[in-house]
Design a protein around this nucleic acid. Structure first.
Length: 224
DNA sequence: AGCAAAATAT
DNA sequence: TATATTTTGC
């Protein structure tokens, strides 16, 4: 029995969700609709993939089929939960380059002509919203909550180097548009508040995050 | 900030 | 040609 216990613990520890494994779950809850909405293709008709590849080849960087670096999201500040900070110790405040998300970075492209790092005021290559980048966007929105989910704060929370407020704003516009449409397709509503639609989904995403926090906390407690 | 439409790039 | 992203005007 004791051996079983140790085995159980080993297995339990082994099955602990790593940041890498956590992603798919969040995605699963969001993707079926979101992925469809944003037309995120996986492999077959991958115009997005093609774009990414094109961008990669354009910036003479190797194309990564598998996204290795789990994107740590900065600390959550505007959350409606002022309780404990977070059950996720791996969260860190670090800037991420667009190249990490397989998107173009003006800095890399401009290395030949201008070498101008001050991307503002300069025309940067159009941003490619890769699934990963979009995931980060969604996470940021979920973290911020409805109140603070404005382009500026979202951009700050995403902390992706090279990402402009306009990028986020335009994407957020599209995002809301989709959520709105999604609500319209939903049963019977139709009459609900216009803004109230995407609020619900964001709330749901937030709940999912809290769920995982609780799980982590629980694991911490029973393991101690 | 937000929205919609036009413009432009892929 | 169609779609994705940006720009523009309000």
């Amino acid at each position: 029995m004791r051996e079983d216990d140790s085995n159980w613990f080993a297995r339990w520890e082994d099955e602990l969700p790593s940041p890498d494994k956590l992603m798919p779950i969040t995605q699963t809850l969001i993707t079926p609709d979101l992925a469809l909405a944003f037309d995120i293709r996986n492999s077959t008709n991958s115009s997005a993939a093609a774009a990414v590849v094109a961008a990669a080849s354009n910036s003479l960087h190797q194309n990564q089929p598998v996204p290795p670096p789990p994107p740590p999201l900065p600390t959550s500040s505007g959350l409606p939960s002022p309780n404990h900070n977070n059950g996720n110790p791996s969260l860190a405040t670090s800037q991420h380059n667009l190249s990490e998300f397989a998107a173009k970075s003006s800095a890399e492209l401009g290395s030949g002509t201008g070498g101008n790092e001050s991307a503002r005021t300069l025309k940067r290559p159009r941003l490619v919203w890769t699934p990963q980048l979009h995931k980060r966007f969604v996470d940021a929105v979920a973290h911020l909550g409805i109140k603070n989910a404005v382009p500026k704060t979202i951009m700050q929370l995403m902390s992706v180097d090279g990402l402009t407020r306009e990028n986020v704003a335009s994407h957020l516009q599209k995002f809301r548009l989709y959520l709105k449409r999604m609500q319209g397709l939903s049963s019977g509503g139709g009459g609900g508040g216009g803004v109230g639609s995407w609020v619900g989904l964001v709330l749901m995403m937030w709940r999912v995050k809290m769920m995982w926090r609780v799980r982590f906390y629980f694991c911490w407690v029973i393991s101690g």
